[in-house]
Design a protein around this nucleic acid. Structure first.
Lengths: 174, 174
DNA sequence: GTCCCCTAATTGAAGTCTCAACTATCGGTA
DNA sequence: TACCGATAGTTGAGACTTCAATTAGGGGAC
């Protein structure tokens, strides 16, 4: 934990940062609302079904799902539990590793996904794709891919109180 | 709710879209962890304190806070309640509108923010700003500003089942 | 073989958010 | 003035997530 002074964000950076928070918030909220209304699914649940639908056998190991979706194992366990209780998904022991659990999509799950996908895609377009130009959307994707794969993202920095490098001392940050 | 076919996302768009979900997830999770560890605050709580610190009088009306942070009123009520129970914030009646409630930052709240800001800024830099070039970060900010202010974001589209315009019928979406 | 540490997954409690219902006030209109 | 729809904020229940603890199996070193 290097304890060097870290400069405040510039005003421009702060504007970007807040735009990110606000935009992400609106987007996710809008998607959740649409999915909940039309299919009784949350975005996480939809994501799980979508991932499963893409694999041969419509089956994925819990840990692979968790990694792909960037969810904690615990969260995944709970969410899959809910899906399983609705018979959209099934848990099976993993043949080659007795610690593992396979999550398999049922026919009902697949059907629900097929029925739900069009509305979801439309919402993603309306809320995210359409407001942007193609180039903007591509740039957004590239930037977020870097953020997603940033190797340091696990061990977030700790810090005591220390002086900042910037101008004033307004903690006008975030 | 026009019921026209909506094309699937292209493969490239899907990659961008998933990168967004993954990146946002890692980012927010990392920030929450850092704030929780170092100050016992969540990102939403930090945001509230930060907004308050920027206003003259360090006071903001509940509804203004809710709009600025893109939180539901209910969520804001709960979160402010928690902050108030820790004496980081105070609720006062709003002089000019008897329905309104003003949320005012206490000195303790301000001090906690000042003590917390450096670590938080560092985390934002490590997780989001540093992995990107300046141009990328600016582009990200501009795109997200459009998403945040998109006028249609409120009434998310509803939809029944309908055929898609794309190629196959794989609901490989999200 | 057996120790030991690592990974896989689950559990339950505590914390947070959402949703719908409710109270109170505002402000325009008849 | 009395009504009435809209806005501000709260509440509590239920849904979802997080965190720490727990169970179970893998796999290398000795």
């Amino acid at each position: 934990m290097t304890d060097d002074a870290v400069p405040w964000l510039s005003v421009e950076q702060q504007v970007s940062w807040r735009a990110f928070l606000q935009g992400a918030s609106r987007l996710i909220e809008g998607l959740n609302r649409q999915l909940e209304r039309d299919a009784g699914l949350s975005v996480s649940e939809y994501e799980i079904l979508a991932r499963l639908s893409e694999t041969s056998g419509r089956t994925l190991r819990m840990s692979d799902l968790a990694i792909g979706l960037v969810h904690s194992r615990s969260r995944l366990t709970h969410t899959v539990g809910r899906l399983e209780s609705r018979a959209l998904v099934e848990r099976r022991p993993c043949p080659d590793d007795r610690r593992g659990v396979n999550c398999a999509m049922t026919d009902a799950g697949y059907e629900l996904l097929v029925a739900t996908a069009p509305g979801h895609v439309r919402a993603v377009r309306e809320l995210l794709v359409d407001p942007l130009t193609e180039a903007e959307f591509r740039a957004l994707g590239e930037a977020m891919a870097k953020v997603a794969s940033d190797p340091c993202a696990d061990r977030a920095s700790s810090s005591g109180t220390q002086e900042q490098g910037g101008e004033g001392l307004t903690p006008a940050t975030l």
